[in-house]
Design a protein around this nucleic acid. Sequence first.
DNA 1: GCGACAG
DNA 2: ATCTTGTCGC
Length: 230
Amino acid sequence: MEEEKQYKAYYDIQKELRARVIHSDVLPEKINYIAGTDVAYNDEDNTMIGAAVILDAETLEVIETAHHEMETTFPYVPGLFSFREIPALLEAFKKLKTQPDLIVCDAQGIAHPHGVGMATHLGLELDIPTIGCAKKRLLGDYDKAVLPSQRGASQTLLFEGKKICAALRTQDDIKPMFVSIGHKVSLETALIWVLKLCSQYRLPETTRQADQLVNRLRADSISKKTLEKE
DNA sequence: GCGACAG
DNA sequence: ATCTTGTCGC
């Protein structure tokens, strides 16, 4: 309907981005640093905080973080989600001293109606290998009953006949995560890294650290603003 | 037509 | 995403 026209420019951008996605492994021989990202919102003043955390790929310790707070301008439109969060994330990445070899996003990669989920979009913008690791399935079909309950079990999801992502059990007897190619990483490699990052919890350590960071920052930001008012 | 829809 | 504490169950 009218929404189609309203957002046409963004759909056109996605079409261009989609053509540039690299589905194979084009990453460093040795991965030293892995980044996690997340964004938190403050409805009160319509702002958001985007953050990037860098973990040592070996120890999974946080070695650097960066963030950026700005006004939220793009609405949440399913299918155009990346345009909402990416501005804050790009600014956060600019502030990092350490450039990551790989980024794990808390969102979809190519498992997206136009093949350009948040992880893929970010990977293309930064020209850094990315993996999409979402808590929920967006699209693609699979047989839940066939996915074993053991950590490490995975099953490919099909969309229009193509393997677009995989449900991955990151811990025994817990809901799977949905892993997809972002950019410059194969699905096989993506699964290996996500599993490695989920040694203790359902969510990758990258996502957990980024999530905790933005929530701390948001709490700080809100209390600071309320103090200024009074 | 109806429902679903990453975060 | 966000609003929110304790609590039922293994």
